[in-house]
């Protein structure tokens, strides 16, 4: 930033000109709606369309019953697994982009980013079409199965029984796969920007001094890329935790996540105060994650 900040008091008119619209919008169309949800979470249904904000804590008490707590925990486990898979797939990809020839780099990045710009619903739908019982994934698995069966006959064993299509969709596996598919670009970009800033001569030094590629990776690359890893984990974990569409479309009856439970309170179950309480618990969970991250990064700053 160049030049000092101006004090608003010395520039009242220009300040009012730029500040009024954003502050007005944020107050009326963000803070006000969120405040109403927060107030509703302390209320109870009174009649058909009325909600009585009585200050009760019943909604929160109900939200921490095992039924709902287990869904919270399960959502967290699914989001964490998704993040881990994204990290494992994404790290080599980010490395490859970083060390690619300069003329290839932007095109590889574009290749990762383009699906991210494509409509989420279309991407989910396209993946579902591929995973259906008649889809190509099943055909591919069927081909592998027949290959294995043929190999067995080669060594004189009984062939396997005929391939029956497996149900790939509507289960927890489909949800995790769908979430990985959707969130992978989120992970690659921060990893790339951390690796890009890394001083390559440190890797060379490590290799020259006799460490192997794997040892260099674990002891040099990963620690130096840590801020990017943390950023990538956060940027994947947070939206995955609140995912609605993927578990709704690709999940089965037992794979609903917290967002699906919230949606049900506002549509079918029509219990707005309880839904409001669940929403705020989800928001608090996000805040805790972000607080943990900023605590960690301030610790790193102190140490460095």
């Amino acid at each position: 930033m160049s030049g000092p900040l101006q004090d608003w008091k010395s520039q009242k008119k220009p300040f009012a000109a730029v500040a009024s619209a954003p502050v007005f919008w944020l107050t009326l169309f963000f803070i006000a709606p969120m405040t109403i949800v927060w107030l509703y979470s302390f209320g109870q249904n009174a009649g058909q369309a009325d909600i009585d904000i009585s200050g009760t804590l019943d909604n929160y008490k109900r939200a921490i019953e095992w039924l709902y707590l287990s869904i919270f925990l399960k959502s967290f486990a699914v989001a964490a697994l998704t993040t881990l898979i994204c990290l494992i797939i994404g790290f080599p990809v980010a490395m490859a982009i970083t060390f690619a020839a300069p003329k290839w780099r932007p095109w590889l990045l574009l290749g990762i980013m383009l699906p991210f710009w494509t409509n989420l619903l279309i991407r989910t739908y396209a993946l579902m079409a591929l995973m259906g019982t008649n889809g190509y994934m099943n055909k591919g698995l069927g081909g592998l199965w027949e290959g294995a069966s043929w190999l067995r006959t080669l060594v004189g064993m009984q062939p396997l029984e005929a391939w029956t299509p497996v149900q790939l969709l509507y289960n927890n596996f489909a949800v995790v796969l769908g979430l990985v598919y959707v969130h992978l670009p989120f992970m690659v970009l921060p990893l790339y920007s951390a690796l890009d800033r890394l001083d390559k001569s440190l890797i060379e030094a490590s290799l020259d001094l006799g460490a192997g590629h794997f040892k260099t990776f674990i002891q040099v690359v990963v620690p130096l890329a840590a801020p990017g890893i943390v950023a990538g984990v956060m940027i994947t974990l947070i939206p995955a935790l609140g995912a609605y569409l993927t578990p709704d479309l690709m999940g089965g009856t037992d794979s609903q996540m917290i967002a699906n439970v919230i949606e049900r309170q506002f549509k079918r179950a029509n219990d707005w105060p309880f839904g409001a309480a669940l929403s705020f618990l989800l928001i608090y969970a996000m805040f805790i994650l972000i607080a943990l991250q900023s605590m960690r990064s301030s610790k790193v700053k102190e140490a460095g």
């Binding site: 169309f29 963000f30 006000a32 709606p33 969120m34 109403i36 949800v37 509703y40 947070i238 939206p239 935790l241 609140g242 609605y244 967002a259 919230i262 949606e263 506002f266 707005w272 839904g275 409001a276 929403s279 705020f280 989800l282 928001i283 996000m286 972000i290």
Partner: peptide, 17 residues
């Protein structure tokens, strides 16, 4: 915050609002 708050929470907030 509108970037961080989960979409579902923002959605229900607007529904209620």
């Amino acid at each position: 915050l509108p970037i961080i708050v989960p979409e579902i929470c923002l959605g229900v907030a607007f529904l209620i609002f």
